[in-house]
Design a protein around this nucleic acid. Structure first.
Lengths: 154, 154
DNA sequence: AGTGAAAACGTGCGTAC
DNA sequence: GTACGCACGTTTTCACT
């Protein structure tokens, strides 16, 4: 289980994983060595999965996001599995969610430009029969939090 | 500008920012010290924004995701700015995108449970008048890439 | 069991070649 | 680009509560 101090440590590390233990310790009122042990425990227990570099999408030539809503042709287990494999194979498809309601799936696709969507669309429909309900291009990212609301966790 | 070696380094670091320089060097056929210089440059130039810990959402008590589609009451600059501030103030609202098409905005909301959605919904409508078109609960995360398709970048 | 002080360790960085 | 050495931060040990 997690106490409030563990949550505070996680909150620091999800914003900057390179924060020196001395600073982490100062912020949660703990010694650096104690922080080191806590973090090691949080890793082993799976609360921290790994550390990653956050890359500027626009700067590396991937400024465009397209959201695609899809409904299944059939709801058979075979179709579902084939769909799962299709989206797994296409790296531009970064996230796929199965939703409640009339729309079955939501896909987030990351691309160099809107022109590339056609390529990804064709790659998708070549692998699996599906009804693309709608494709919406992201005009503006109004908010992008990148850190979990840990203070509001259960 | 970025060459293919820089992209390879970014690809390694976006998967695991703790990869030792010796291993990064081995994978891109470069000495550790040369890697160190490249990475420092990638940071200064803003390609790498920062390093963060990836936290297991379910384990910290935030397993639920809700996607909400919103259309604007009016399209005035004042409404837009007020909407921007409203979503900025609510930490559970992690991402907000302005989209093409009839739906104006897409919100990704992260919560302890579906029951908490009512609380966030009320917090939103208390701050800004808007038409919530639809709220869909994520039943299953079919794919979650967490790393950019750098090999397909422009 | 969990803490803090201090010593040992390892990695990354700067200088020299 | 390689080799060395220093410096820093992290990790471990240990005494203690």
């Amino acid at each position: 289980m997690l106490n409030s101090r563990d949550l505070a440590i996680l909150d620091i590390l999800q914003r900057d994983s390179e924060t020196p233990l001395a600073e982490v310790g100062a912020r949660v009122h703990l010694s650096p060595s104690a922080c080191s042990r806590r973090i090691a425990h949080l890793r082993e227990a799976g609360y921290i999965k790994r550390n990653v570099a956050v890359i500027d999408r626009a700067k590396v030539g991937l400024p465009t996001t397209v959201f695609v809503t899809v409904s299944a042709r059939t709801h058979s287990a075979a179709w579902t599995e084939q769909f799962r494999q299709a989206v797994a194979q296409i790296p531009e498809v970064m996230e796929v969610y199965r939703l409640t309601g009339s729309i079955d799936y939501l896909l987030r696709i990351v691309l160099p430009s809107v022109d590339d969507y056609d390529r990804v669309y064709k790659a998708l429909v070549a692998r699996i029969e599906m009804n693309v309900v709608c494709a919406s291009i992201v005009m503006e990212t109004v908010k992008s939090a990148e850190s979990l609301p840990l203070h509001h966790a259960g």
